[in-house]
Design a protein around this nucleic acid. Structure first.
Lengths: 342, 342
DNA sequence: CTGAAAGCGCTTACAG
DNA sequence: CTGAAAGCGCTTACAG
């Protein structure tokens, strides 16, 4: 931390702490001459106000914290761009925290740490079953402004930006049905994510609504690792009655499903159709297959708007009522879905 | 910020602020009974110490800041994993800051902000010509511990983790020469990066050392955008004597050079060899071409070791002398370099 | 317009 | 082992 304090500046400018503070904070009520004097002293001493002291008394840090699981995951590409562009529109400093593997203890640590005077607001991305500790803290400590993305937790009064995963999954399955498919399977995503449930429900609903059978083993689960989508696909292809189309819970899973199909010598989409979710710009692990037909969710927009929302709320004098927004998804037709062959 | 303070805890536990502070900080000198009393009060009130107040008096924040340009850039995949894994080995909270487009003012803002009591140490990634403001501040304000990655700035006493870009570029060009190429061109990277110069120098040196002519227009420049590598490649292919091999300053550039060649109907590597640098795990913009032969730099290791280094230095009682480390690169043979056809 | 003083929520000698 | 008091570096009424 810096060695030069406001006291040194005051001394050098022949004035009081209060006056220096006033010019630092642009509060006016200082003669132009004195102001210049102080500014010079600040420049000469290369003074920067101590952030901790300032935060302590102002009860404001001017920081916004963003917490995500596995920041390195290329899934975040568009979301990060949204956060970044949004950040530029505010005067806040934005700090990203990565929770490796979504480790529950780490996430709670970050939530508590940031909440206790490190930031003014927190954006929490993602819906994970293991987040309950962090969420409990949130529910009981309304100390900072919160925005939750993708996570609709009941009884927590904070802003929520949600994606219509259920509707999206329904649209995806209906899209496959419109292509003549009836033997449609589903590969679930990370079992720790709530969106995995939503998309699974959307799949099941839509199959039922259309009078299609959800055959045994047509619902395959994966581990938390995307690459387990590969084995899930293999299991589907090994079935006595393999599906003609597979709806995957996300593009990362789908990318591994595609690899599995191609490795079996199948042609996509002639032999099998594969559909993802997210319309993720960058896929994991040097994916080289065909472009994946998918449900796009507006990640860039969500990132951008979460920052804008926070900017407004923080600069509003009084506390604002929490807002909830629901984002729709839509089909992006690419190369992995075709008409049913048989 | 939290409403419950150490004073509330002391009151509830029927003791003094000092005692509460002692148990929070595990300093001993408290009877087991009183300790339990305090712990209960803390639990009952769900108290967390105010970070700002604590930092102010301890002159320590327990945070480490990492500043990079364009956090969303998939270039950072391995580096981030290194940072993340390294962070887990320390007790520090790690905060990532993204400087959009490497904007000089933003970077200086982050450096100053973090330095003035937000973190105990900063990792600054990258070598950019526009960083001088940030670096000047660094040079004049030894307030936090610094680690610079890829940036060998003279007269700044901080830890430096450097990559042998010059040697790596030489090895790359020699690798192409061993494949019989003599008409070797170079596409430069981001003109704002110092590594671009190093790699260019490595190219020129090695051409000269091997008695090869650096023909006019064999050195192509790009803008700060990776995709400009596409036009650079087109210009090379339009030359009356196009090169048989192209060494690109980085894989992202190379990925666009490959696209340009493929779009011309050229076969890689039969018709033209292309070599990159970085051995980047994830390439920009849904790259689907062949795997790029490249010089690998140990980004994961660098990320990991930068955190480990900081962990040691911060926990050491007294200030440590700065260390410098140089990382070597090595050829990773993939699919884009072959023997010279003509 | 200006400054002395109180106070933000902690920790740390210091005295007992 | 325990607590009263000073102080970290700021800002903010308050009085002038």
């Amino acid at each position: 931390m810096s060695n030069v304090t406001i006291r040194d500046v005051a001394r050098r400018a022949n004035t009081s702490l209060a006056t220096v503070s006033r010019v630092i904070n642009d509060q006016g009520n200082v003669t132009e001459e004195l102001r210049r004097e102080v500014l010079n002293a600040i420049r000469d001493l290369d003074y920067s106000p101590n952030h901790a002291a300032r935060s302590l008394v102002k009860r404001r840090t001017n920081n916004i914290g963003i917490i995500v699981n596995n920041l390195h995951d290329p899934f975040f590409y568009d979301l990060l761009r949204g956060f970044e562009d949004g950040a530029q529109q505010t005067s806040y400093d934005v700090l990203f925290c990565s929770v490796v593997n979504g480790e529950a203890a780490t996430k709670e640590k970050y939530v508590r740490h940031l909440s206790s005077g490190v930031v003014d607001a927190i954006i929490l991305y993602g819906s994970y079953l293991t987040d309950e500790g962090a969420v409990r803290y949130l529910r009981e400590n309304r100390t900072v402004e919160y925005v939750m993305i993708e996570n609709d937790i009941p009884n927590v009064s904070c802003c929520k930006l949600l994606v219509d995963n259920l509707g999206g999954a329904q649209d995806a399955v209906e899209y496959l049905i419109r292509h003549g498919h009836t033997k449609i399977a589903h590969i679930c995503g990370n079992p720790n994510k709530k969106v995995t449930m939503d998309r699974l429900n959307g799949y099941v609903n839509t199959m039922c609504k259309n009078g299609l059978e959800v055959r045994e083993n047509y619902i395959q689960h994966t581990s938390v690792k995307y690459c387990s989508g590969y084995e899930s696909m293999q299991r589907l292809l090994d079935l006595p009655q393999p599906p003609t189309a597979v709806f995957c819970s996300d593009d990362a899973i789908a990318s591994f499903a595609v690899r599995a199909a191609l490795d079996r010598g199948l042609r996509i989409p002639q032999d099998i159709s594969i559909m993802g979710f997210d319309h993720q710009t960058i896929l994991p692990d040097r994916y080289r297959g065909p472009d994946i037909t998918s449900m796009e969710q507006p990640l860039y927009t969500i990132g951008l708007e979460s920052m804008q929302l926070l900017g407004q709320r923080l600069s509003a004098g009084e506390p604002q009522p929490p807002v909830t927004k629901l984002y729709k998804t839509h089909v992006v037709e690419m190369e992995t879905v075709g008409p049913c062959g048989k």
